[in-house]
Design a protein around this nucleic acid. Sequence first.
DNA 1: AAATGATATTAAACTAGATTAACATCTATT
DNA 2: AATAGATGTTAATCTAGTTTAATATCATTT
Lengths: 194, 194
Amino acid sequence: MNHLPLLDYINKYINLTIEEEIILLSKIVHRNYLKDQYIVQQGDICKSANFIISGCTKTFYMDGEGQEHIVMFSIEDWWSSDLGSFITQTPADFNLQCLENTELIQFTYNNLKELYAEIPKLERFFRKIIERAFVASQKRIIRNFSLTAKERYLIFKEAYPKIEQRVPQYMIASYLGITKEFLSKIKGQLIQNQ
Amino acid sequence: MNHLPLLDYINKYINLTIEEEIILLSKIVHRNYLKDQYIVQQGDICKSANFIISGCTKTFYMDGEGQEHIVMFSIEDWWSSDLGSFITQTPADFNLQCLENTELIQFTYNNLKELYAEIPKLERFFRKIIERAFVASQKRIIRNFSLTAKERYLIFKEAYPKIEQRVPQYMIASYLGITKEFLSKIKGQLIQNQ
DNA sequence: AAATGATATTAAACTAGATTAACATCTATT
DNA sequence: AATAGATGTTAATCTAGTTTAATATCATTT
């Protein structure tokens, strides 16, 4: 039961006292998922905010034609949740699935509510986390509109080198909003021109 | 000096006491901009979080080719800021420009910091606001990937009928990530098929 | 009411990326 | 080591959306 990554992560944004850390640890659940298991399925209610200790997940949307669209990959020290479903406790738009065996810490809806009441500082922590996530999301929209697929791929490689190594190409294509065939073509061009 | 829309809006998420409202009002600035004026320019530091009392703004990114890409429109009861620039106090990626004469309330960086210290409840308020903004942003990414331009346009019309009326078509095209010519074609098709 | 500038439409030629399909490689299981 | 299933590549054809360019409409100012 290794909680250190979570506490280290939180203490980058706020300072918890030992007592507060103890309260916090009393309200979280440790959970292990196997590769390919679902943490949340589209239509279910996302019951917890999930902090990843180790492993990797994808957050994706399955459209009417049965096509998968990946919104994000999450690895160690990041979150994996359908936030929309979690905050409103309504059915999820997204699926969360493990791409590797994954160890995570779960904050259930009610426990997090209690934590906000007992450790108001946590409001600030989560505010800051979400501010950053929102900014990243806005920048991604702009990139999708103003850059070509090749440019987006190069930026992805540079920004998330770890993820590129751990995830199959066809999922990266989905994240970039292109087909696997076209990503393959782009990679071919890049090898040639170098 | 009409502060009511802001207080009403805040009190939908948290409950402020009269004393807290007074503190809050003492730390905000009322400001009027004319149509076409910039609230923030790309490269500047976004010095305030801006709540719109009346009017309309666009948040856009100017790319290397001098093309404008609109990330969002903001009207009454919503925010208009480059959040990334504001929270890190580093140069803005986006421009904020008024599309109408606009009356807004500004929270400067330092005043907001003081407000968070004096009224910790505000952390919760802003957390909730940004959670919602993040969820909307994620959904937009998915829509851009899984829907055609025509579908996106129909959704936009339905979700923001007020904005469609107030903003020129070519800006809506930019928001949708397509050219004004193609939006014109889509509209032509929709009229024909009905 | 004419003139100017901003916004919108139409149509032809073009291109980034999709689709289809055949084949290649890699990995895991028996 | 052979087979099956998942992943990746290549190439031809196709299409949603772009580009260019000409024309039309609308709003504002003189």
